[in-house]
């Protein structure tokens, strides 16, 4: 019975697991403290579709904000053809209500909560 070896192997494995635990904790805490929760930028209610790095603002009868990340693999949707939003990576298409119309994506775009300022010129989006 080589108890010393077993002890050392267990200790190493244990410390490795502890290290993994610390890493996960540190990274998640860092993410929570550095990711902004709200974004504000100028708003134009007469523009049908506004593309941003992270969001798409669509103003029809009411204004809705969707995540600009395709639900397939997260690529940034940056164009509209006809009345469809098209992802440049693999061609997934969404209509102007964020509903997926053509795959490979199968989930609708994530809708985000947004508030328009009283003077109608700024929009604040919760990420």
């Amino acid at each position: 019975m080589n108890t010393r070896r077993t002890f050392l192997q267990t200790a190493v494995a244990g410390f490795a697991a502890l290290f993994l635990f610390f890493w996960n904790k540190i990274t998640l805490q860092h993410l929570n403290t550095t990711t902004p929760k709200k974004y504000s930028f100028p708003f134009n209610k007469n523009k049908l579709v506004t593309f941003d790095d992270e969001f798409i603002v669509i103003s029809q009868s009411e204004t809705k904000v969707y995540s600009a990340h395709c639900t397939h693999l997260g690529c940034r949707i940056d164009k509209m053809e006809g009345n469809r939003l098209i992802c440049p990576c693999h061609g997934s298409e969404y209509d102007l209500n964020g509903k997926v119309m053509k795959g490979p994506a199968y989930k609708n775009l994530t809708e985000l909560k947004a508030q328009i300022s009283e003077d109608g010129k700024t929009i604040t989006i919760e990420s």
């Binding site: 990340h69 693999l73 997260g74 690529c75 940034r76 440049p88 990576c89």
Partner: peptide
């Protein structure tokens, strides 16, 4: 876009 795919 590749970065985004990797992240996802």
């Amino acid at each position: 876009q590749a970065r985004q795919i990797l992240q996802t």
